[in-house]
């Protein structure tokens, strides 16, 4: 007869074993590409393939460092993601604040409409956006990418910041207003500092999203010096056709910034995702 505590411990042990197995499976492809990035040119084309590099080499990374990936693609991604996320944060924050604090005719319908925009497939708008960018002579520019990313990130960010403002008690601002502060200074001095985590969450999700964005970038960017990392990876693949270790090193370099950012801020990240998708 197994006693209850033993059973419980066995249960926990099994649970952990299953979870570990699952996580190992999930992380396997990522580890595989990291391993590949440290192989030599010859070792990526062995049959049967090996998981660990037989000889550890930095050749892949050396070639990435000499390529357009580090000269153009990754810096462009940085500029586009950083600027668009920095712009989205205050613009969405102000709108989120209004939706949280004020009511006017149609405000609810407007909020629903903005949420509805979130459901438009990005692909649908690409053809018109391409035309617009072409008419404005903005094809292959960072400006066009940033504009598209700001417009794309706003609905979700408005939603997140609104939920965040909702959780801040309005009595604080009202007290300031009674003391004679203007609504704007109450917003700036009292609400904004308290809402910082929400604003940061919006920044974070936008940064990761735009960093990984591919379709708009591949459609709007054709000049080498304005391409972003995800688009550049395609060129990279034709340039280093069978040099898989170089391609793998490129993939690792592209993934590294967002993975590190995610690891550093995971709590805010999870919270923001739940906030944005479930909390009505």
């Amino acid at each position: 007869m197994v006693t209850a505590p033993t059973r419980k411990r066995l249960d926990m042990w099994l649970t952990n074993a299953m979870l570990m197995l699952f996580c190992a499976l999930m992380i396997f492809p990522v580890l595989y590409i990291v391993m590949t990035s440290f192989k030599t040119r010859g070792d990526v084309l062995t049959s049967p393939p090996t998981f660990f590099p037989p000889v550890w080499s930095l050749d892949g990374y050396q070639q990435v460092f000499r390529s357009n990936m580090l000269r153009y693609y990754i810096p462009n991604s940085f500029i586009n993601s950083l600027l668009s996320s920095l712009l989205v944060m205050p613009i969405a924050g102000l709108a989120g604040y209004v939706f949280s604090r004020y009511r006017f005719r149609g405000s609810r319908a407007l909020l629903l409409a903005i949420l509805g925009i979130m459901m438009i497939p990005g692909l649908t708008n690409l053809i018109p956006l391409y035309r617009m960018a072409s008419d404005l002579q903005l094809l292959s520019t960072n400006t066009a990418m940033i504009a598209v990313y700001v417009g794309g990130g706003l609905p979700f960010s408005i939603w997140i910041t609104k939920s965040f403002f909702d959780s801040i008690p309005r009595e604080l601002e009202e007290a300031a207003l009674i003391d004679g502060a203007t609504p704007l200074s109450a917003l700036w001095r009292i609400v904004v500092p308290l809402a910082m985590p929400g604003l940061f969450a919006a920044f974070l999700l936008n940064f990761v999203d735009t960093w990984n964005e591919f379709l708009a970038a591949v459609v709007l960017l054709s000049r080498v010096d304005t391409k972003t990392a995800t688009v550049g990876l395609l060129d990279f693949q034709s340039q280093f056709e069978v040099a898989y270790h170089v391609q793998a090193a490129g993939c690792v370099m592209i993934a590294l910034p967002v993975v590190v950012l995610f690891l550093l801020t995971r709590k805010i990240f999870f919270q923001a995702m739940l906030e944005g998708s479930l909390k009505g």
């Binding site: 992380i27 492809p29 590409i33 084309l45 049959s47 990984n212 995800t230 993934a255 967002v258 995610f262």
Partner: peptide
């Protein structure tokens, strides 16, 4: 566990796609 599970989610489609294509290339 959550962090490990989430790493595939933060990767770009293109990077993820490249990884998967390689894992299924003939012979290699």
């Amino acid at each position: 566990y959550m962090v490990l599970l989430f790493i595939p989610w933060v990767l770009s489609d293109v990077v993820a796609g490249t990884i998967w294509r390689w894992m299924f290339i003939r012979d290699y």
